[in-house]
């Protein structure tokens, strides 16, 4: 079925069109809610000179961290990279260009990019290295920094349930950056746990309407836990 059927059946089809030098926006927070199979496909395609926009860059050997191993990433836009030794090494040696961006600013950059807002003022980062070289403005006695929006050639997200129209629902805190990332890609690919029939998702409960999503693929996920904490119960 053509038209609104966005389901693809191979990772090759899911990431078709990705080329060297493109910008990829990835959902996820740490290892939670990351599109594991789509990242593995980028590794397999050996695409280089990528600009990757994601809150974190995975860990050594998992998540976006695997794209560092063959130096596929030219520039990383992220808020926190403390969990990744290879990342820190490439950053300190200058092999990897990094734009450290406050987490809320990063989320808003994606949201704005997807919503057609080219830039926005925020108090976050005023007077810090983040504001260097950026326009600032005083509004009602407070200082703000002008932050440009972000859009990507591709956005890759992880969702819980999808239908063939590309409507998405996320599970628990694996939502995180995924809804904004989904809006900001020219081609947005959702790797999902389950594909359901149209109508099974309650329309008012859909987190990401299908208009933002171009491709859907059913994945299987390791769902690695970064910091496993338990209490006696």
């Amino acid at each position: 079925m053509a038209g609104f059927n966005k389901v693809v059946h191979s990772y090759e089809d899911a990431m078709a069109g990705l080329q060297d030098g493109m910008t990829v926006i990835a959902g996820g927070f740490g290892l939670c809610g990351i599109p594991e199979g789509l990242i593995a496909q980028i590794k397999k395609m050996a695409t280089t000179d990528l600009t990757v926009v994601s809150n974190n860059c995975g860990v050594d050997g998992f998540g976006l961290g695997i794209l560092l191993e063959d130096r596929q990433i030219k520039k990383m836009v992220a808020s926190y990279v403390g969990e990744n030794a290879l990342f820190e090494k490439q950053l300190l040696s200058g092999e990897l260009e990094v734009e450290l961006t406050p987490q809320g600013t990063l989320a808003e950059k994606m949201r704005a990019g997807g919503a057609g807002i080219p830039a926005f003022f925020t108090a976050t980062g005023y007077g810090t290295p983040v504001a260097e070289g950026k326009e600032t403005r005083e509004i009602d006695g407070r200082h703000y920094v002008l932050e440009p929006a972000i859009t990507g050639d591709f956005a890759i997200v992880r969702a819980w349930k999808a239908d063939r129209y590309g409507n998405l629902m996320f599970r628990h805190t694996s939502m995180n950056f995924n809804p904004m990332a989904a809006t900001a890609g020219k081609i947005t690919v959702a790797e999902v746990e389950e594909i359901v029939e149209p109508g099974e998702l309650e329309p008012s409960q859909i987190h990401t309407p299908g208009i933002y999503v171009q491709r859907v693929i059913k994945g299987s996920f390791e769902k690695r836990i970064e910091r496993r904490m338990v209490r006696q119960g």
Partner: peptide, 13 residues
Amino acid sequence: VKGMGGAMDLVAG
């Protein structure tokens, strides 16, 4: 090098 995470947003907001 760790990054600011959400700290800059939190202190500003």
